[in-house]
Design a protein around this nucleic acid. Structure first.
Length: 950
RNA sequence: GGGCGAUUAGCUCAGUCUGGUUAGAGCGUCUCGCUUACACCGAGAAGGCCGCAGGUUCGAGUCCUGCAUCGCCCACCA
């Protein structure tokens, strides 16, 4: 031990484990020693996890704590198995989310981002980033994350920036990125386009308005339409978009409307004439079976419009107010316009009726504002050809999902993938690497120029060339303008170009930034140096496991797989482990804004990181949501304390001596007492089972099994027996110390990935009293796999008998209210099991408070005034003298007889079933026969005892 | 409209992939106990038509079908 560790000559270990005295110190020890950096055996395959980068928007929540726990368990496990391991941490700039947070902060100062201008605003966001990044990494540390902090990456670092630009250019050059005028999701509050995945669908109470569109039949001489007096009734939930209607559609199979197809109807108030047409997309059952078609504001209608070559009317501004197309409603907010339109139609007799209607509206996943489908120029990625190989690698099993069921969800989405709108009208993010040449395209670049002196004045809109002709300089345009180059030729480049290909020096970079998930999709390789062919990339890519929440399979996982294959030429990882959502006790999602969140650090402060980790990992299986309650965390804390005290006790038993750790336990166990062979066999079996569970990613099950072993077998029985051996001359045999040390040390190793702090602390203490423990620190000590081949089934069986006897006597004592401290006489009738009982006698005496224990043959135990427990192979008889109550004893026996009879009945029924005997495996039949024999024997014993009572 | 998950003790959850003793844990409850590791503990106990109905099977909490309730995801019925 060195000075930077835990090894100052320790004073007495505290009576209870206090994580606050341990965690920070142990973490520093690990980090200072460099254990988080890749090490291990170079001949073993490397194991790597790229950490999902938390948003810089704020502090970590319990979802991150779960991510950290799962990943840290996997990393620590592999590290202990000797693999070179890399856990690469990072932070995400989280474009829209972070921009919103900083804008909110500005709003408190009465400012908008426009008051600051783009450059200054970006500076403000960087300030935020600088403040939160250390907070976030410190939180990871508090949770015990053994990540390689020397490699922490931010999505806006140079490396990832270059990866983003390189990918953009590659996609563009391959024709997979295009600019298009399309119907996109627009958030009127965030003032940006959103991808389909960033729109959440929520149920809202709304209305269904039935609107009459009068039929037009030719025109009068003055051009006004001739109305027939008929009308067609359409039902809509969005009357305000009626100003954008360019048709009315019915289903071609709908007999009610066959004669209407081809006729013309008029939109009241704005007097537009539109055709009635037939389209399959119209549901006959809905509303009246006739639908207004608004290609500019509804995705379905857009498609209908495409099929019928309808004009597209965009009736809204970007802030969701109505524009000039809305005639009298221009300038009104969409909902104000809705009210007014409904009122006007009603007054004119064009509103037939209004029904309440539950509708599903799309809202911005970041701010909750109702999203508006709008026609807009945006950049898109063509997904189909990218998706195809990403589908194959999952189908072929090159990438496996845990749990498996998410593969189908992934595949289903991928097979129906749609193009991805990647441009965002934000200031925070990766700016699109596209430039326009003002020298060549100055007439085709439309600039919106603000006057910094008069920020509240409406900006001036003109072409670049017009502004320059007016004496505005290029620099002023760069500083105060935004521009749109939809007609101009894009210059796409990785490095910021200084001139256009034809030599023009006045370049304007695209204003928009990329969807945050664009850079996220590159994360598994952009963090490793791509597009450079770095050694890191060659060694660690493809990575081993991607661990994240199932809620971002599409947003993130799918895109990483597509981009990994496309850019890096290989799958990004071989396994996708998906965890569930952490909820609070009420089952609500943890959310800061709703005030339903629990700060993980508060839990760590109160219970310790190990307790939280144990609780998170054992509270559910992979892919399942979990409800976290403090009560549950207490279990973890108690377990840490149990480990602490078990170790404290073992160390105190060792005292000033040193214990030699057994090397070869098969040899070591030879000739050892029953309980030694038993616990050694059990700990080996535990290690095998834990190994199997870990391989299957059943981390919670592995942790539970270790808990169960440590508490219910090692502490409750082995340590208790060891106490007897340590004190009781009768029991003295070989020293139990090597076994205690060995089993404890193994347990600490097995639990280290789950509870790293307390186990490291205890291990460091323990090994000071032990010779021959492998490893210089627990974090890098070999992980037990239970592959020694040692197993002692006989010891396990015999020990079970011993435990049964102790329990049976304890049970009788409790039932008969024998004073706990009092020693009582007891008999054990043991024929075949006699050697076992004899060897265990001292333990039975102490653990069941029996003195003396008389081991007798069949029929030699007293029969008067006794309580009897008939077990398999042995019978415990406790003389009760003054405490004896015939009736109570009879009842006790009858109850046992009834249970045994029921069991015997079940087995007999099974065995007498011809089908069972002929079809069940021999082994199962034999086992049942054995069981029946045992139960029958017990039954006989019980009946005999009952008969004795008369 | 399609899909997925959950439904097991009073509560929170394992167990279901790969069917086979008497279905487990923690918390809570009840009875005892400060026995020199641990009261963040120990001993004992009570508590379960494994959502419902069918089916497959010698055998079903576990596999299949249907249904119910709750939750989630996807989807162009305005």
């Amino acid at each position: 031990m060195t000075a930077d560790t835990t090894a100052e000559p320790r004073r007495e270990m505290a009576k209870a484990y206090d994580p606050r005295q341990t965690e920070a110190r142990v973490y520093d020890f690990w980090e200072n020693r460099g254990y988080f950096k890749p090490g291990g055996d170079p001949s073993k395959p490397p194991f790597s996890i790229i950490m999902p980068p938390p948003n810089v928007t704020g502090e970590l929540h319990l979802g991150h704590a779960l991510t950290d726990t799962v990943e840290d368990i996997l990393i620590r496990w592999r590290r202990m198995l000797g693999h070179p391991t890399l856990w690469l941490p990072g932070v995400d700039h989280a474009g829209i989310a972070t921009q919103n947070v900083v804008e909110k902060q500005l709003a408190k100062e009465g400012l908008t981002r426009h008051d600051l201008g783009r450059d200054e605003f970006e500076q403000r966001v960087w300030q935020w980033v600088r403040r939160y990044r250390p907070i976030i990494s410190n939180q990871h540390r508090r949770l015990g994350a053994s990540a390689d902090w020397s490699r922490e990456v931010f999505t806006l670092d140079d490396g990832p920036q270059r990866a983003v630009r390189t990918t953009f250019k590659k996609l563009y050059d391959d024709g997979l990125i295009y600019r298009g005028h399309r119907l996109i999701n627009w958030c009127p509050r965030c003032q940006t386009a959103l991808s389909d995945l960033e729109v959440e669908h929520v149920d809202r109470e709304g209305s269904l308005w039935y609107m009459r569109y009068p039929v037009v039949d030719g025109h009068n001489d003055d051009g006004t339409p001739k109305l027939t007096g008929d009308h067609i009734v359409v039902a809509t939930t969005r009357p305000e978009t009626y100003v954008g209607d360019t048709a009315v559609a019915v289903n071609p199979k709908d007999d009610r409307y066959k004669s209407w197809i081809g006729r013309t109807v008029m939109l009241p108030v704005i007097q537009r004439e539109v055709p009635v047409l037939a389209d399959d997309a119209v549901e006959m059952e809905f509303g009246t079976g006739a639908v207004k078609v608004t290609p500019g504001h509804d995705p379905t209608d857009f498609e209908i419009g495409q099929r019928h070559d309808l004009p597209i009317v965009n009736a809204m501004n970007l802030d969701a107010t109505m524009n000039a197309e809305a005639g009298p409603y221009a300038g009104q907010d969409r909902y104000e316009a809705r009210k007014n339109i409904v009122r006007d139609l009603d007054e004119l007799g064009y509103l037939e009726k209004t029904e309440p209607y539950a509708l599903n509206v799309g809202v911005c996943s970041r701010c909750g504002t109702v999203v508006e489908p709008l026609m807009s120029w945006q950049w898109f990625v063509k997904m189909e050809s990218l998706a195809r190989p990403a589908i194959d690698v999952v189908r072929e099993g090159r990438i496996k999902f845990v749990p498996e069921r998410f593969e189908r969800i992934y595949l289903n989405w991928m097979e129906n993938i749609r193009d991805w709108c990647i441009s965002r009208q934000l200031w925070w993010g990766h700016r699109i690497p596209v430039w326009y040449s003002a020298d060549e395209d100055g007439d085709r670049i439309v600039v919106t120029l603000r006057d910094p002196q008069r920020p509240d004045d409406p900006p001036r809109v003109a072409t670049y060339n017009e502004l320059r002709a007016d004496g505005v300089t290029h620099e002023e345009i760069l500083r105060n303008g935004t521009w749109s180059g939809v007609e101009a030729t894009p210059i796409v480049a990785v490095d910021t170009p200084e001139r256009s290909p034809t030599g023009g020096g006045h370049l304007l970079q695209e204003n928009d930034v990329l969807d945050t998930w664009f850079s996220s999709g590159l994360w598994p390789f952009s963090t490793l140096g791509w597009p450079e062919e770095t050694d890191d990339l060659k060694y660690w890519y493809p990575t081993s496991v991607m661990e994240t929440g199932y809620d971002i399979i599409f947003l993130w996982v799918a895109r990483m797989i597509m981009m990994g294959l496309y850019c890096a030429g290989d799958i990004p990882y071989s396994h996708v482990y998906l965890h569930g959502t952490v909820r609070n006790e009420q089952g609500q999602r943890m959310s800061k804004s709703l005030g339903t969140g629990i700060d993980p650090l508060e839990i760590v402060e109160k219970y310790g990181a190990d307790a939280l980790r144990y609780t998170l990992i054992t509270s559910s299986g992979p892919g399942n949501d979990l409800k976290l309650s403090e009560q549950r965390v207490e279990q973890g804390r108690n377990f840490a304390n149990k480990l602490w005290n078990a170790t404290r006790f073992v160390i105190s038993l060792i005292g000033g001596e040193r214990v030699e750790m057994p090397r070869d336990i098969t040899a070591f166990a030879q000739g050892r007492p029953l309980e030694d062979r038993w616990i050694l066999s059990r700990v080996e079996s535990l290690a095998r089972s834990v190994d199997a569970q870990m391989q299957k990613f059943e981390l919670g099950e592995a942790a539970r099994q270790a808990y169960e072993f440590v508490w219910s077998e090692f502490a409750d029985w082995y340590i208790e027996i060891a106490k007897v051996r340590a004190r009781d001359e009768k029991a003295a045999g070989p020293s139990p110390l090597p076994v205690l040390a060995y089993v404890l040390e193994r347990s600490l190793r097995l639990l280290h990935p789950v509870m790293p702090f307390v186990t490291e602390e205890l291990w460091q203490s323990l090994v000071q009293h032990v010779d021959g423990a492998e490893g210089e620190a627990l974090i890098v000590a070999p992980y037990p796999r239970g592959d020694s081949g040692y197993e002692d089934a006989a010891a396990e069986r015999e020990m079970a008998t011993l435990i049964d006897v102790v329990r049976a006597i304890r049970n009788i004592r409790a039932e008969k209210r024998v004073e706990p401290a009092k020693f009582i006489e007891a008999y054990v009738v043991a024929d075949g099991a006699r050697p076992v009982i004899e060897a265990g006698a001292p333990y039975i005496e102490t653990l069941a408070r029996v003195r003396p224990l008389r081991i007798v043959g069949d029929g030699e135990a007293p029969k008067e005034q006794v309580a009897t427990a008939v077990l398999e192979g042995v019978t415990a008889v406790v003389p009760l003298a003054g405490l004896f109550d015939v009736e109570a004893e009879r009842a006790r026996l009858r109850k046992q007889i009834a249970e045994a009879e029921a069991e015997a009945g079940r087995i007999e029924a099974k065995l007498s079933n011809e089908g069972f005997r002929s079809k069940a495996p021999e082994k199962v039949v034999a086992a049942e026969q054995e069981r029946l024999a045992a139960v029958t024997a017990r039954l006989e014993g019980l009946r005999a005892s009952l008969a004795e009572l008369g």
